[in-house]
């Protein structure tokens, strides 16, 4: 990760919807799409394949977008893309405005049956935004999915547990967060890439969403961002060769009463 990315907080998130058994999705994706969000796209596309009439919309929140990056879900097979784009939609650490914008967008889309999102962003967010969406809409939520199935009125989700799995069920509409155990997201094929070129994303500003950003009270203000304190001095063990270093390591650990 580059220094710029460290100082440039992104809050990747994706969500999907089903309209009359159709699904929609959201992603915030600069400079790449959050890995878990690509898995959420994959989950949506599998539902689209299984349920006729499923429509997948990708929602993405931010100030500006790299179109070739953000269009990847379209190339993978999503139906359309809505960019929630406004100078106020900075990728700050506070999720309140992100949630407000995504919730407003989901309401504006209407007829959304399922919101799919990556289980967490790789930087800051820890799956707060999907929880916020579920709370704001009053929808049930199932987290850390490795399999998602929709049958019209119900979503069945296989959740990953540390030592196994859990099958849960909720009535639609619902929010589901997707984990890497779902499997690798598909690669866009040439037809998908060509098709994605022809799709122009819709762009909705804060005003389009009926949001006044300054009226959304933040949950946090940043006090400091610092390199973590280095807690340990590393002692490198060397030997005549690798095996010798291994033997010396054993002796050192014994000296320190670590074994």
């Amino acid at each position: 990760m580059t220094a710029k990315q460290v100082l440039d907080p992104e809050t990747p998130l994706s969500a999907f919807r089903i309209e009359d058994d159709r699904v929609a999705a959201a992603s915030n994706m600069a400079p790449v799409i959050n890995g878990f969000d690509e898995q959420a796209v994959e989950a949506a596309l599998r539902i689209k394949e299984a349920v006729d009439g499923t429509h997948v919309t990708v929602l993405s929140y931010g100030t500006d977008f790299a179109l070739d990056v953000i269009k990847k879900p379209l190339a993978m097979g999503a139906d359309d893309l809505v960019l929630l784009q406004d100078p106020a939609f900075e990728n700050v650490i506070d999720p309140m405005l992100t949630v407000a914008a995504l919730v407003a967008a989901i309401r504006k889309l209407g007829d959304v049956d399922l919101v799919l999102a990556g289980r967490q962003a790789s930087d800051w967010d820890n799956a707060q935004v999907p929880a916020g969406i579920a709370e704001a809409l009053g929808w049930p939520i199932a987290t850390i999915a490795k399999h998602v199935e929709v049958d019209g009125t119900t979503v069945r989700v296989q959740r990953v547990l540390p030592d196994g799995h859990e099958l849960v069920e909720a009535a639609l509409p619902a929010v589901v967060t997707v984990s890497n155990e779902l499997g690798a997201p598909r690669y866009p094929n040439m037809r998908g890439i060509m098709g994605a070129r022809r799709i122009q994303p819709a762009v909705w500003s804060a005003a389009d969403l009926g949001i006044e950003p300054t009226e959304v009270a933040p949950a946090f203000e940043l006090v400091s961002l610092a390199a973590p304190e280095r807690r340990v001095e590393t002692e490198m063990i060397t030997g005549d060769d690798d095996a010798d270093a291994g033997r010396k390591l054993a002796l050192r650990l014994r000296e320190e009463h670590l074994v």
């Binding site: 990760m1 990315q5 460290v6 907080p9 650490i93 790789s122 930087d123 800051w124 946090f220 203000e221 940043l222 006090v223 400091s224 961002l225 610092a226 390199a227 973590p228 304190e229």
Partner: peptide
């Protein structure tokens, strides 16, 4: 945050 590369303190 940011993959353990930074400790963020928020109020």
């Amino acid at each position: 945050t940011y993959g353990g590369n930074a400790d963020a303190t928020v109020r």
